[in-house]
């Protein structure tokens, strides 16, 4: 059907959806890795410093594979189709000049409104309890998500899912163990982790919310039916909370928007840090 003008609009739509989908996954992994990396050298005990860095390294590896794939998708698009995809002037100049993009262009040259990551992952580390709660919610979701993505009709996403599932299974074990340890540890730790899981609960709904991109990808057999993961996710969470003697948060309004570029105030600072060198000394190799 190549070249059939009637197919061009749905084709472009599908291409954009796949690109958004890939970027959204990449952004999640990158922002999560960034947050965990902030702990490096500041952990409560050396062994945990090392564990966090391991997870951060896995995440950055996932982010790189996904950004590389997104860059390839972009490089295969005709210039006309990608001139207005992003808002960043430096990025658009590269696109207009017909330059090939790479993983770093996508991580370092998009501003927050073009980032499609979840609100959850950009939440600050605050303390060990918040860090653990954030990881736990995210890991429990990603484990189910990658399991589903293993059946993707898109070979690249399928491959990334297979590799990442092993990693995220370990991440989930680590964060689950910490939830239990803190919940069933001292009174102080119990209180701290209960507060953290309550406070971050409002960012968990977004993980299961189907945007137009999610819907298009699920229908095409490329993406995962996110809403369908919720039941299993909740059961897994409940199971760990029970072991941890923690209460499941209820009746909390769910925040969303990250997947469509509406972020909290935190992402801007993450990107200011992350993109500082690329912005100050543009266009160089490092």
């Amino acid at each position: 059907m190549e070249g059939n003008p009637n197919n061009e609009i749905p084709n472009t739509k599908m291409k954009n959806a796949l690109l958004n989908y890939t970027l959204s996954l990449a952004d999640n992994a990158s922002v999560m890795s960034h947050r965990l990396g902030e702990w490096c050298g500041h952990g409560p005990v050396l062994e945990q410093d090392i564990a966090l860095t391991n997870i951060s390294l896995d995440d950055i590896g996932q982010a790189r594979s996904l950004y590389q794939y997104a860059a390839e998708q972009l490089n295969n698009m005709p210039t006309t189709e990608k001139t207005n995809l992003f808002s960043d002037m430096m990025l658009n100049a590269k696109i207009a000049a017909g330059e090939n993009l790479d993983e770093d262009d996508l991580a370092y040259l998009r501003d927050a409104w073009d980032y499609r990551s979840l609100l959850l992952v950009e939440q600050p580390n605050k303390d060990w309890a918040y860090t653990i709660a954030r990881s736990f919610y995210y890991d429990a979701f990603m484990q189910l998500f990658y399991k589903g993505l293993q059946n993707s009709k898109d070979d690249r996403l399928k491959g990334i899912a297979e590799k990442s599932l092993k990693e995220v299974t370990y991440h989930l074990r680590w964060s689950s163990e910490w939830i239990i340890r803190l919940g069933d540890g001292t009174d102080e730790s119990h209180q701290k982790i209960q507060t953290a899981i309550n406070d971050l609960w409002m960012y968990t709904g977004e993980m299961f919310k189907m945007t137009d991109t999610d819907k298009a990808m699920a229908v095409a057999g490329i993406g995962v039916d996110l809403a369908g993961l919720h039941k299993d996710w909740l059961n897994n969470i409940k199971n760990i909370f029970t072991q941890a003697t923690l209460q499941l948060p209820t009746d909390i309004w769910m925040q969303d928007g990250g997947k469509e570029g509406h972020h909290s105030e935190h992402l801007g600072y993450i990107l200011a840090d992350m993109q500082f060198l690329q912005r100050t000394y543009p266009g160089l190799d490092w």
């Binding site: 890795s33 990396g37 410093d49 860095t53 390294l57 982010a63 790189r64 490092w286």
Partner: peptide, 20 residues
Amino acid sequence: TRAPSLRRKAILLAKVQDEA
């Protein structure tokens, strides 16, 4: 957090982790 590329960031993370 300010490493100029994802590759450099990963290498630096791994390096500092080695020191731990």
